[in-house]
């Protein structure tokens, strides 16, 4: 079912970007809401205000970082699909590692390798739905989507 509900490749980039932003913004709201509440000075109204300002200032940033991650990941994933002409877990693993490396490019080679390995491990542990799906029915319909 998952295979049908996802957008096909070039449009998947926009979709993943938005999905990652939503995840990051909602998760960031929760995290920074609690953090702002805890780190605010005494008094319930001050704590609520700290929580609100934490959400207002930080949650969009978390969402934006997630969106960049999702967008770069999906772009590389689609490029790999186009180049390798097949969809398998290796696409997500490679693009996860490449995304980690690209996004820490300003922090030096050691950081790049570190993020790449982390991202690769994350992608290997939780392969996307496309990796678990049964063999595709492309040959049945003679699909030549990516050729």
């Amino acid at each position: 079912m998952e295979e049908y509900s996802r957008d096909p490749c070039p449009y998947r980039i926009i979709d993943d970007c938005g999905g990652a932003f939503s995840m990051g913004a909602i998760g960031g709201s929760l995290f920074h809401g609690i953090k702002g509440f805890k780190s605010a000075p005494k008094g319930f109204s001050r704590k609520l205000y700290g929580s609100l300002s934490g959400i207002k200032e930080r949650a969009p940033i978390v969402g934006g970082n997630f969106a960049v991650w999702g967008g770069v990941f999906s772009t590389i994933d689609c490029s790999l699909v186009y180049m390798r002409k097949k969809e398998d877990p290796w696409n997500s693993i490679i693009s996860g590692a490449a995304t980690g490396a690209i996004l820490s490019i300003r922090n030096g080679y050691a950081a790049m390798v570190g993020s790449a390995v982390m991202a690769k491990q994350f992608m290997m542990e939780e392969p996307p739905p496309s990796a678990q799906a049964p063999p595709s029915t492309d040959s049945l319909f003679g699909s030549k989507l990516y050729q």
């Binding site: 957008d7 449009y11 980039i13 926009i14 979709d15 993943d16 970007c17 938005g18 999905g19 932003f21 939503s22 934006g64 969106a67 967008g71």
Partner: peptide, 11 residues
């Protein structure tokens, strides 16, 4: 459609 719309808005 919402994720595509959010992503489109971001881009």
């Amino acid at each position: 459609k919402s994720f595509s719309q959010i992503g489109g808005a971001i881009i």
